[in-house]
Nucleic acid binder design. Structure first.
Ligand SMILES: [Mn+2]
Ligand SMILES: [Mn+2]
Length: 309
DNA sequence: GGTATCA
DNA sequence: TGATACCAACGCTCT
DNA sequence: AGAGCG
C-alpha cells in the first residue's frame, strides 16, 4: 500500500476490443490488497466467453468500486451520460413510472469498458429483458449463519437436489462467491415471481421439516445461529444474484463458481475459488453451468405436488 | 470513475 | 485548481 | 419511526 504511488498513478493504455477503441485508466490502482485494476480487467477479458452468456439480455446494475473494495462504492442503474454510444441500452419503466435506461452487457467491449470503471461485481436478474416479469431462473439462495458453515450449505444443497429430482426437476449449483450457495432451476418464462417464490418457500419448508439445520424463512438472530437459511425472497422482480464467474468485492477476490454436484461432498472452502485459479479450472472442463441457459423446465407438476393451485 | 458545479 | 456531490432500492430486523 | 443490513 503505497499511497503516494497511487495518487500519481497515471498509467493509461488504449486498446481495441472487437473494433471499439477503449481508454484504460489508472491500471496500477489497487482494488484489492495486492490486486490492481489491470488484473481485474485481465480477468474479465480472459473470462468473457464464460460470463457474457449470463449477462446478455439482463439489465445491468453497476457495482462500482473506484477506490477499491475498502473504499466508497455505489450502485448505478441509469446509464451514465458518458456511456459510449455503441453500448446497448434497455429503457424500462418501473411500476413507479420512473424510466431507467439500463446498460446491456452482451459483448466484450462493454464488459471491458465496465471493468475499467472498476465494476468489480456483475449481478444478474432472474428474468430476461424479453419478459422481465416471468423469470427463466429459480434460485434457492442458501445462506449459512455461524456456526453453520459452507459445508452445511453443501449438505443442504445435496438434499435439495434430491427433492427437486423427485419433482422431475434438474438443478445446478454454484458458490455465491461469499459464504453460501446458489442452487439454480431453469424454467420456461411463463410463471410469475410470486409463483416461483412460493414454490421455493414451500420446498424450503419441506426441507426444514426434514433437516433441523434448515430455516425456510427469516427468524430472529438467535434462531438463525447454526442454520442454513433458504432465502426465498431472492425470487423477486428487480432482485439480483451474483453472476456465475463474477468476482466479489471481498478479500482474496473470490469468484462465484459453478460446481459439479460430486464436489459438494468434499471439504470445500469457497475462498478456494478466486481470481487467480478460475481460468485454469474452466480451461478444458468448459462451463458446467451452461445447461442453466438451455433447459427451460416446467413447474406444473411441482406446483401440484406442493399443493399450489 | 467520470462528470458537473461551485469556490 | 481543487473540493464536493452524485450515481438503487426494497423488505427485513433490530432498537 | 428510523437506522442498518444484504
Ligand atoms: Mn446468498
Ligand atoms: Mn440471501
Amino acid at each position: 500500500g503505497c499511497t503516494a504511488k497511487q495518487s500519481t498513478d497515471t498509467s493509461e493504455r488504449w486498446v481495441e476490443v472487437e473494433g471499439r477503441r477503449l481508454k484504460l485508466t489508472r491500471l496500477e490502482k489497487q482494488l484489492w490488497p495486492g490486486i490492481t485494476k489491470a488484473e481485474l480487467i485481465k480477468y474479465y477479458a480472459e473470462m468473457s466467453d464464460f460470463i457474457l452468456p449470463y449477462l446478455r439480455s439482463r439489465p445491468m446494475t453497476l457495482h462500482l468500486y473506484p477506490d477499491g473494495i475498502e473504499g466508497k462504492h455505489f450502485f448505478r442503474k441509469e446509464a451514465p451520460e458518458f456511456t459510449p454510444d455503441w453500448v446497448r441500452r434497455f429503457p424500462y419503466r418501473a411500476e413507479d413510472g420512473k424510466l431507467i435506461n439500463y446498460i446491456l452487457c452482451g459483448d466484450r467491449p462493454t464488459l471491458i469498458w465496465l471493468a475499467n470503471l472498476a465494476n468489480i461485481e456483475f449481478p444478474i436478474t432472474l428474468s430476461r429483458i424479453e419478459d422481465l416479469e416471468h423469470p427463466d431462473l429459480v434460485v434457492f439462495d442458501l445462506d449459512p449463519f455461524q456456526p453453520a458453515t459452507f459445508r452445511d450449505a453443501c449438505m443442504v444443497a445435496l438434499v435439495l437436489r434430491d427433492g427437486l429430482r423427485q419433482l422431475g426437476l434438474q438443478s445446478w449449483v454454484k458458490t455465491s462467491g461469499a459464504t453460501g450457495l446458489h442452487v439454480l432451476v431453469p424454467v420456461a418464462p411463463k410463471y410469475t415471481f410470486q409463483q416461483t417464490r412460493e414454490f421455493v418457500r414451500r420446498l424450503g419448508k419441506m426441507l426444514e421439516s426434514l433437516m433441523p439445520e434448515v430455516l425456510a424463512e427469516f427468524r430472529p438472530v438467535e434462531e438463525r445461529k447454526g442454520r442454513v437459511l433458504i432465502d426465498f425472497g431472492q425470487n423477486s422482480l428487480g432482485k439480483t444474484i451474483t453472476a456465475p464467474y463474477s468476482l466479489k468485492p471481498l478479500p482474496l477476490a473470490p469468484v462465484s463458481t459453478p460446481l459439479d454436484w460430486t464436489e459438494l461432498e468434499k471439504e470445500l472452502d469457497p475462498r478456494e475459488f478466486n481470481m487467480h485459479n478460475i481460468l485454469e479450472r474452466v480451461k478444458g472442463g468448459g462451463d458446467i453451468l451452461k445447461p442453466v441457459l438451455e433447459t427451460p423446465q416446467t413447474l406444473d407438476r411441482a406446483f401440484e405436488a406442493l399443493g399450489m393451485g
